[in-house]
Amino acid sequence: MQTPAPFEYERATSLAGAIAALKAAGAEARVIAGGHSLLPMMKLRLASPERLIDINDLESDLAYIREQQGEIRIGALTRHAELLDSELLAEHFPVFRDAEEVIADPVVRNRGTIGGSLCQADPGEDLSAVCAALKAHVVLQGPSGERIVAMREFQLGPYVTVVAPDEILTEVRIRTSPGAGSAYEKVERRAGDFAIGAAAAALEIEGGTIAAAGVALSALAPTTIEITRAEELLRGARPSEELFEQAGGIASEDCAPMADGRGPVDYKRHLAGVLTKRALRRAAARALQTEA
């Protein structure tokens, strides 16, 4: 069986302690939470951190889903299984349940965390697209305090984020609003696989008009990609099948997929359109409470 290279290991007992440990260890340290992205990379020896800071004991500080100040706030150590099961989340942002039902498998979902998923910044990862469509913000804690970053600015490239070596992503914040609906659509080669392509859509519909819109794609560009032209098209328009079709067309044009074992570029562009349209259709139905 593949085994990781040697490293030093410490368990953080507090968030401040974890940040201090990261600062002390320098660039060769990594935070480990669920470990389901990091450990396979270490076994393949594609990652060889010298030190792991285990933050799993910080559950009481970092594992929660709560409503606060007009936002849903999700602690970074919240596991996929908890995101899937959360009624609060399903009520406000059903896109999470859609996505969580198709993220990896139920056993992996018992370990993997939202913070780990976002920080891994795998272009095929699902929650990054979900959070991007929801216009979420993330809280980063470092030695000199916290900063809040919009999802739009979070990823710098494939597997690269703005999180500094001595920072920890601690929380995801999403503004709630009445009239919101959201959905996630994914096509995969097999249950549990990363997406061939996936689309997250979030709409706020006020008085029959789309007041706010978010569309983001997974696995259809080198990073998670927001389809801003589609969002602009949607804002201020009345929801309709034609509109969603048009938004899908924009997604097909604006995505930037690469050919790989999951499919060629033309198929992925086609998927971008289909999945964007479907996600918008469901998001609208949920916002209007007309979902079948």
Partner: peptide, 11 residues
């Protein structure tokens, strides 16, 4: 249930 190939004993 967890996959014990992807958990460190120390964890």
């Amino acid at each position: 249930p967890v996959k014990s190939c992807t958990v460190l004993a120390a964890m």
